[in-house]
């Protein structure tokens, strides 16, 4: 049984040097729902998503992960979060399989060749392709990033512009994929400006420009 995670964030402010990116942002993402973060370019959607993942420390405010047992400690977050974002690159010198295998090993998962292959097939990639990721198209890289994000069956899925660089078929597949993730009880947060992707949302936080 999946233990759903609620993400609560309050009073988030971030400053890079003298430049203020956001201030006083608050919201909540619940299990089984899709929270959409919108806002014009430069409003800090990607930054907020990285703050939610614990990758960037906010100047102000606090992010908390809550599950049935109370607050999830920071060291546990890495097991619960899956993330795909332009800011999270894959290793260009490695093939798709090698990238996934590395992610699995470093997370301490059992390395099961079939499972990794299935993960690649599920996002529409060929596991036997010998090309390194540096030679992939951006759309293929995006698919691989999604495979990486769900590799460890996370409770929280954080996606930054997930549909960018995907062809129309790919975007349809993506919508299905993300909705499925939420229906299985995951907490999904999507940062996007795409009108279609905004309709996925059950909740929304709009960032001022």
């Amino acid at each position: 049984m999946r233990r759903g995670v609620t993400i609560r964030f309050e009073g988030i402010g971030k400053r890079f040097g003298r430049r203020v990116v956001m201030r006083g942002i608050a919201g909540q993402a619940r299990p089984g729902s899709i929270l959409v973060l919108t806002g014009p370019n430069g409003s800090g959607k990607s930054t907020l998503l990285q703050i939610l993942a614990g990758l960037i420390r906010p100047t102000r405010g606090e992010v908390r992960y809550l599950d049935g047992d109370g607050e999830v400690p920071r060291e546990e977050w890495r097991h619960r979060i899956g993330m795909a974002a332009p800011a999270l690159a894959l290793y260009e010198e490695l093939t798709a399989m090698e990238n996934l295998e590395f992610c699995a090993r470093v997370r301490g998962l059992e390395v099961d060749g079939d499972r990794l292959r299935n993960g690649l097939v599920a996002v529409g990639l060929d596991p036997d392709r010998p090309t390194v990721v540096g030679g992939f198209s951006t759309g293929m890289q995006q698919r691989l990033k999604l495979a990486q994000a769900v590799l460890h069956d996370p409770d929280v899925l954080l996606l930054d512009e997930p549909g960018a660089n995907l062809d129309p078929d790919g975007q349809d597949w993506l919508a299905e994929f993300v909705r499925g993730m939420a229906e299985e009880g995951r907490t999904v947060v999507v940062a996007t400006n795409d009108r279609d992707e905004m309709t996925w949302g059950t909740d929304r936080v709009a960032l001022p420009g």
Binding site: R78, A87, L88, A89, Y91, V106, R107
Partner: peptide, 16 residues
Amino acid sequence: ETHTAPLLRLAARPLV
């Protein structure tokens, strides 16, 4: 430089 650090930060324990 190649922006792979955030992924490593998310996936791995720091001491590792």
